[in-house]
Amino acid sequence: MTDQSYNFAYLDEQTKRMIRRAILKGVAVPGYQVPFASREMPMPYGWGTGGVQVTAACLTPDDTLKVIDQGADDTTNAVSIRKFFQRTAGVAVTEATTEATIIQTRHRIPETALTAGQILVYQVPIPEPLRFLEPRETETRKMHELEEYGLMHVKLYEDIARHGTIATAYDYPVRVEGRYVMDPSPIPKFDNPKLSDSPALQLFGAGREQRIYALPPFTHVVSLDFDDHPFVASKAPHDCDLCGAGESYLDEVITDDQGGRMFVCSDTDFCRSRVAAGHSGRLGAGGK
């Protein structure tokens, strides 16, 4: 049931037009952060206001929306955002990745391969990949303009010198179509390869920082690395204890105060589908 006291998908039409224009420019210049006049939303900054605005600008009444946080449909903030769109746009919702036409996400890319016609909307806290190397917007804007990405390589190389490996485990920077260095949002670097050449459209919204950027389908995205230290998409060296998947990203769950722990898929829909299909892990229903 849609709340009639607000416009379809909450935002007024003028705001949606402004956001839509920014999205189109983002699509035209993949990886470039388009400034937009982010609005105050009825949820706090830092809690997905950018993603919510992008989703609101994209939604039609025919869409089926999925919202995940940390890969899961049932985390509190995902529940809250899903409810917001049920209330203000009256759209159908789903937990099944394959049924969704728009997926809003925080910190994960679903395990199930995305398809043409789907849109993945990322919530982005700090869109500027160079921000922690240079806090000033005036400077980082110049660095993007001049393709001055040396500082980023120096930082990654310092990691290698000190630790023997690049010590960035999430929010791992990428280069888009050989031009812009882009922040993929705080997804684990395990997810980075899925950014590249996806059949789905990927949109990124940063509300507080007032930026929107995009990866059109089939856009080439490379995680920054060095010839002698190539990028590795790593994960915990375990299988899911519920569904037995060996190739999914895992959450570590502490089960007692004696050091007991288990590993389960962070993508709850992926895990449930596998269990439904009869797969089982160490502690699953079909397990020992």
């Binding site: 416009n7 998908a9 039409e13 949606k16 839509r20 189109l24 035209a28 994209c58 059109p216």
Partner: peptide, 19 residues
């Protein structure tokens, strides 16, 4: 019905420019 018609129109335009 501007909110709904412009939403459908934008999605078509977005698809067109993205592909």
């Amino acid at each position: 019905d501007a909110p709904v018609q412009s939403a459908h129109a934008f999605r078509a335009a977005l698809e067109a420019l993205s592909r």
